[in-house]
Design a binder for these strands. Sequence first.
DNA 1: TTGTAGGCGTTATCAC
DNA 2: GTGATAACGCCTACAA
Lengths: 301, 301
Amino acid sequence: GYTPNAFARGLGLNTMNTVGLLCADVSDVYMAQAVSFLEKGLRSNGFDSLLCCTGALIKDRIKGLDLLLSRHVDGVVFIGSNFVSTDQEQNAYILAAARKAPMVILNAFLEGAHVYCAYCDDGAATQSVTQQLLKLGKHRVLYLFQASTYSGMRKMDGYQQAYQAFGLPIQGELMLECKPGDGMTAMEKRLADKMAGGLRFDAVVASTDDMAIAALKAVKAAGLRVPQDVQVVGFNNSMLALCSDPELSTIDNQLEALCKHCVSTLKGVLSGERMPQRAVFVGDLCCRGTTIPIMMKRGEV
Amino acid sequence: GYTPNAFARGLGLNTMNTVGLLCADVSDVYMAQAVSFLEKGLRSNGFDSLLCCTGALIKDRIKGLDLLLSRHVDGVVFIGSNFVSTDQEQNAYILAAARKAPMVILNAFLEGAHVYCAYCDDGAATQSVTQQLLKLGKHRVLYLFQASTYSGMRKMDGYQQAYQAFGLPIQGELMLECKPGDGMTAMEKRLADKMAGGLRFDAVVASTDDMAIAALKAVKAAGLRVPQDVQVVGFNNSMLALCSDPELSTIDNQLEALCKHCVSTLKGVLSGERMPQRAVFVGDLCCRGTTIPIMMKRGEV
DNA sequence: TTGTAGGCGTTATCAC
DNA sequence: GTGATAACGCCTACAA
């Protein structure tokens, strides 16, 4: 009946088999799901998970990362692409941190020593879905997005490229940015106002499920039918997609596979193996009730 | 530019200012929300959060707790009442652990040295809502619940007491148990089968929002109107309640207040103060679209 | 094979 | 007040 003292052990070995989980907000269903997968995978490999939720501000993100490093975590997993900015200077703190411990980034790409990334090609998925909607004659596809994160930009690129590939001009009024703090209710109200003001569209692609559901509600409230008059596609295939009526069609970005990959990569790195620094997964439209079933086949996204 | 070595510091002081967060499943919206509040509160008091998700099996729960204790956490917060059983023997492991570090239990009550509990009086809330439905003439209130956790039992008591207080017999066929592993879709299907088999009810009270939404979907699919034909009430006031159509009326059990209380209690205990070992909060029906608005006033639950 | 000494880096104590 | 030193408990390496 003897348990070694973890602190003494840590001091001697300079590790307590702990990895830091950095996320903006674990109350977000998607991030919570990621934390769940990661914690499970890490634990089954003997690692504890130190959770650090930082919110959206870069200042706090840096502080959170520093805190984890000061605890000598064996590695850090960044959950959500909020941590990687399109502005490379903003990413310097990650590269600096990577000199102390391996950094694993979920859902974004950043090049650098000891930085390992796993993400879904959200851009291609968004483009494919948008393009299929355009092909169906839905030429006014509303795009709802949130902030200039890595994956946010990729998704938007996909949306715009779909229009370009289809030979149609991109219409600024159809691209609606939503503030991260605002809840679903605020989003719904805002969209209702826009519609009352004359905004018309025949499809919606949203970069998260909650925004898609907000749109769905606004559209139904305006007396339009879903999916006959307006088709709606969300992103993340989160549990929320099963709560709406109709159930939400949504792009599944392979979160479980991504998380498993992150865990095994980290495990490999920490046991001295050379691991690939980049892994790209492909998205997959999950068709439910807010799209016309025949239009999109699973696996085509 | 000097950062002290956390391990050496931990060894000397026998603490690394870390608290363990024990929860069955962070991918559950309610628990994720709790983790979010707790982590935030703990961090702002200088504590790191070590997350440990154990699943439902008692064996794994004990293992998880042991793991946290072996890491010499300063305290443990149990999230969700799954950790406290109605069978007192099953709770011995908590009492034993409490000799090593203070245990804080969210949403359940357990008496013991160094055990601190904060919970919402879910029983009273359930009784009040059920009773109001009965008064409205809804004499067949379907009750959906999940397992014999502490708060699960309290809620069920409340439901049954409502029938007793109203002078109506409790009908076993109206109490439907759902397995924890089953998702919303399974629940919905099961209820649809029951309805096809002749089960009739004019109201639903569910012990979590997801079950309520599953019921809502089954009811609507059967061609019944909500709330006119069937009223539905969920539990937890989670984000899911905003996704359904109509939006779900649900009992708010003050999660944020509970979490804040847990944090301040733990903080107090760890700084040597004497803290109350039990705090009871009162629930509050949040009326949305699945109940007839006039029937329930906020604050009456 | 068994046992013992040294080092990890901090904090706290004690002597000056 | 200041500066040296022991103690925290484990691991590892070396010696017997």
